[in-house]
Design a protein around this nucleic acid. Structure first.
Length: 373
DNA sequence: TACCCGTGGCT
DNA sequence: TAGCCAAGGGT
């Protein structure tokens, strides 16, 4: 019933040899490939989810400096862990990682489990990550099917299922189970991904450089450029936001912690509100909602910056103002997870990229006004 | 299943 | 340039 009939006419031993030989010779020198420490493999796989290698490298190196061992990550403050992830995106990844690491420390004596059943129960470890850790760190013959693997194998095996559909991953897992070299599971799985990243790329694959093109059905048919089949994703929607950098008479800055669930969970931000359609201006919308929430009237000053920030599924259309406020009651501050912090301490907190831009604009404005004096 | 969840580079 | 894309998982 599936589309794996091409496997029956493949020379699988030769395919393995061609693929692994290429990988052993051409693989990139990446920091998480220096050894097969399961903790390091785990961290790298979480960071690499939906994220480019070049983006991950500096984050991985710093993360290993801050949290060199599983135990040190388990014992770290969440604030510091989020700061280590600041700018990397998909922040629930690192909260799930620390939660899972704590479970490993407590329940498995600090040893990352080496069975599919146990490792799959850990928070943030799905089918791909489970297979990646087991095959790379422990030499287990488990498939690790990511976007690269689906693209590569859709071409080699001429599979035309829509890779955007979750169920399709099972087809490729079955293909890998039949193809994998059980004596070189780490190199085999990584080679499929490396090939997808370096040669068998989405737009125009470099088939003339491909070590396995003689095994590739799509190349033989000349149809590699229209594979894999993938439907388009939905468009983003705009969310109008009014924000402000609010200071008090002691030159402290008002920040607040975002809710523990949802977008940018547990990160810090400058006070901001979604603008209702009924309000004439974003400045007025901020003033109204700030006053309603904190029982204090803010003195809003000049416009600081406009920022359009695109997420995977929505766009913040932000207008940011300067402002001053005083005497917010402590109860209200606490109930909204707000606090005043000295300007020199702001950067100690983990902010989403959009709010890092706000802070940079604020500091630039201050430095300019200082220079003019 | 469909949607939520970030960011930055590329074409 | 506006989308597309990148070593996915949770709900």
């Amino acid at each position: 019933m599936n589309n794996l009939h091409i496997l029956e006419k493949m020379n699988i031993p030769l395919f393995r040899q061609d693929l692994i030989s290429w990988f052993e010779k051409e693989q990139r020198d990446l920091p998480w490939r220096k050894d097969k420490n399961p903790y390091k493999v785990w961290v790298s796989e979480i960071m690499l989810q939906q994220t480019r290698v070049d983006t991950v490298i500096p984050f991985f190196n710093r993360f290993m400096e801050w949290f060199p061992t599983l135990e040190e990550l388990a014992e770290a403050d969440e604030e510091k862990v989020l700061k280590a992830w600041e700018g990397l995106g998909y922040y629930s990844r690192v909260r799930n990682l620390q939660s899972a690491v704590r479970e490993v420390a407590a329940e498995y004596n600090g040893v990352v489990p080496d069975t599919l059943e146990a490792i799959s129960k850990l928070k943030g470890v799905g089918p791909y990550t489970a297979g990646a850790i087991l095959s790379i760190a422990y030499g287990k013959p488990e498939p690790a099917v990511d976007g690269n693997v689906m693209r590569v194998l859709s071409r080699i095996l001429l599979i035309e299922e829509d890779i955007a559909k979750p169920r399709t991953r099972k087809t490729f897992e079955e293909a890998v189970r039949r193809l994998i070299d059980e004596t070189h599971t780490s190199s085999f799985n990584q080679a499929l991904m490396e090939l997808g990243a370096m040669i068998c790329t989405p737009g125009t694959p470099a088939c003339l450089l491909c070590p396995v093109r003689e095994h590739c059905e799509a190349f033989a048919e000349g149809v590699q450029s229209r594979l894999p089949v993938k439907n388009q994703q939905k468009k983003t929607r705009d969310v109008p936001i009014a924000a402000a950098v609010i200071s008090n008479s002691r030159n402290e800055i008002l920040i607040r912690k975002r809710p523990s669930k949802g977008l940018l969970a547990n990160l810090w931000e400058f006070p901001n509100y979604e603008v209702h359609a009924s309000v004439a201006t974003k400045r007025e919308s901020f003033r109204q909602q700030f006053q309603e929430q904190l029982q204090v009237i803010p003195q809003l000053g000049e416009h600081l910056i406009s920022i359009d920030h695109t997420f995977s599924h929505l766009v913040w259309k932000m207008e940011v103002f300067l402002g001053k406020a005083e005497e917010v009651s402590e109860n209200i501050m606490n109930s909204h997870q707000m606090k005043w912090v000295a300007e020199s301490e702001v950067e100690g907190y983990a902010f989403p990229v959009s709010h890092q831009k706000i802070w940079k604009a604020y500091q630039l404005l201050k430095s300019q006004s200082t220079n003019q004096r």
